[in-house]
Simulated scan of single mutants.
Amino acid sequence: MPTKRQLPTARLRRLAREMRRLRSEAGLTREEIAASTAINQATLYRLEYAKGRPQKRTLLTLLKEYGVEESQREAILALSSQADEQGWLRPYHADLPDELVGYISFESEARSVRNYESLFIPGLLQTEDYARAVIRGVLPTVTAMEVEQRVQARIERQSVFEKDQPLELWAIVDEAALRRVVGNPKIMAEQLDHLVKVAAEPHVTLQVIPFGGGAHPGMLGGFVVMDFPDPDDPQLAYTETASGELFLEADEDIRRCGQSFDHLRALALSPGHSASLITSMARELV
């Protein structure tokens, strides 16, 4: 039986950040903690960087070492007990890449997502046929079963719009992503019509950067910035590169992504003009 993976959640990140803060305020290094508690440095590193949820006895030992008062200790223990709750998890997710499952986890907990894409329709706005065609095109060596698993995961992600507090999505798409015919003209026309329909929802804002907009920061590649409901949960950025997917947590990286998104938002067509442009593109395909 495969080993159960510790999958990331916003609460696990919050716990990790809190444990780093407590150790820092206590003026202790990981080496000193390892020497005084017999908790090895690898375990401490995993705990402080959300690589795993600590056992209760380990957490209690550390909180005592850091001089944490009882009321705060109980709050941290409660946070730890909830750190790996994942109501979004499906059995077949075990077969998906860790980076993809991690992304799904964070997205399911986010309050808002800012997403820029230069070559693809954003995943939360894709139709099933478009998703299937784009996954087959981008990953030509995966099996038919793997394609269907990824398609199912992508469509299920869109349930974030059906929650009592729907995810707020602000998506900016380069015109190139809309002009590229993925699958065939019929699939692409249906995808464009779907974009216009979804963009009319109050929790979705969609803008297009036209070819006439010239060079812009988004030409470096797509990225996502997530905000979470609890103010104690730090923002998270995500980007995909030729060498793999990256989660960005450093303040400077997140600030840079936020500034780029603001620049793109100012450069893009208004939501109304964007919808008109997408509608005209769909008509050209039928």
Rank of each mutant, 00 (worst) to 15 (best):
residue 4 K to F: 01
residue 4 K to M: 07
residue 7 L to S: 03
residue 11 R to D: 06
residue 12 L to G: 01
residue 12 L to I: 10
residue 13 R to D: 03
residue 14 R to T: 13
residue 15 L to V: 12
residue 25 E to A: 03
residue 26 A to Q: 05
residue 28 L to F: 07
residue 41 Q to Y: 09
residue 47 L to R: 00
residue 55 Q to G: 08
residue 60 L to D: 12
residue 67 G to A: 10
residue 69 E to W: 12
residue 74 E to G: 02
residue 75 A to T: 08
residue 80 S to I: 01
residue 83 A to F: 03
residue 84 D to M: 08
residue 87 G to S: 11
residue 89 L to E: 10
residue 92 Y to Q: 11
residue 94 A to H: 13
residue 102 G to V: 03
residue 113 V to I: 15
residue 117 E to S: 12
residue 119 L to G: 02
residue 120 F to W: 14
residue 121 I to E: 09
residue 121 I to H: 06
residue 129 D to Y: 00
residue 132 R to F: 02
residue 133 A to V: 07
residue 135 I to E: 09
residue 138 V to G: 12
residue 140 P to A: 00
residue 141 T to P: 00
residue 144 A to N: 13
residue 149 Q to H: 14
residue 150 R to D: 08
residue 151 V to K: 04
residue 153 A to S: 15
residue 158 Q to F: 14
residue 163 K to I: 03
residue 165 Q to A: 13
residue 177 A to C: 10
residue 186 K to M: 11
residue 186 K to T: 05
residue 192 L to W: 01
residue 195 L to A: 06
residue 204 V to P: 02
residue 214 G to D: 04
residue 215 A to Q: 12
residue 220 L to C: 10
residue 221 G to W: 00
residue 224 V to Q: 00
residue 229 P to I: 06
residue 231 P to Y: 07
residue 240 E to G: 02
residue 247 F to A: 10
residue 252 E to P: 01
residue 253 D to S: 15
residue 255 R to L: 07
residue 256 R to W: 04
residue 260 S to N: 13
residue 267 L to D: 05
residue 277 L to E: 04
residue 279 T to D: 13
residue 282 A to L: 06
